[in-house]
Write a protein that binds this DNA or RNA. Structure first.
Lengths: 143, 143
DNA sequence: AAAAATACTTGATATAAGCAAGTAATTAGT
DNA sequence: ACTAATTACTTGCTTATATCAAGTATTTTT
């Protein structure tokens, strides 16, 4: 396989996957959260208690944009922030009780939408699919 | 591998890939074309002479939005439209000379950005990567 | 011939994202 | 210890991207 074919395969995948992600975004619209917001909530769940800066080490959003999203999530009682004692520039962010529940709902929605997409595949095909995704993850992102 | 692991793998991939596509979008910003516009031009190149409706069979954009994008591309002399003789509701759309050149530039930019991403991989790893993408394409999109 | 569907357009609006300037706190340089 | 630079976060303003709803013209269905 030459470089041109390799690049062609990846570009073909990208063209198709962009649309899948577009569909995913529409699924999230009904929830009242954007994909980006749901991503932020996922990170806060994973990290437990974190900061805007740490979230942005993953997401690389515009700082002002992130600040506003967090502000909105706080005003909707999904997140709370408390001033860090160690560094008074920093706000520690975490999920409220409501936030935990909302995040779980989003988590389930995401899993269900994936389950739907792979439901027409056999068990063996589903495993092949997962292994392909895992391989790409390792090769591209070292994970 | 159980269903939970399979879904987990795909979701992990998605979280990472969303950002790759975000970066790709930023690359395109400098060109004066959005990823969506470049996608439209790609389809017009592939199809030769096509219609808004046919483009949207692939992209599923809002009709009005697509109409405006096409309008803009026409006013920038990238596309031309001519009324179909067979059906006077329809406009046949195609690339101008300038449009062909611009599309080629976008094509190269896209290929180069992929080449950059895979450049740190060995030839063998690049082939594994392409094969993984191909397998996913077949499983998810039947292509 | 009327009703329904299709192809496309346009006005108004919403959502997502980015830029730039600013405040407050911390760290680095001398 | 004091100034300069950096970091964390915020806010006002703007742009980019996308959607909704209503409308025109044409074609297809009944």
């Amino acid at each position: 396989m030459g470089e041109i074919e390799i690049i062609h395969s990846i570009r073909k995948f990208n063209r198709n996957y962009v649309r899948s992600i577009g569909l995913l975004e529409k699924t999230f619209l009904n929830t009242g959260y954007s994909l980006t917001e749901s991503h932020i909530l996922y990170i806060v769940k994973e990290e437990g208690k974190t900061t805007a800066t740490d979230i942005n080490k993953v997401l690389h959003l515009d700082e002002g944009y992130l600040s506003r999203i967090i502000k909105k999530l706080i005003s909707n009682s999904i997140l709370i922030k408390e001033k860090s004692q160690a560094d008074k520039r920093v706000f520690k962010i975490s999920l409220t009780e409501k936030g935990i529940k909302e995040q779980q709902k989003l988590d389930e929605l995401s899993s269900c939408s994936i389950a739907g997409i792979i439901s027409h595949l056999s068990q063996g095909q589903q495993e092949e699919l997962a292994q392909s995704f895992n391989k790409i993850m390792r090769l591209l992102y070292g994970q």
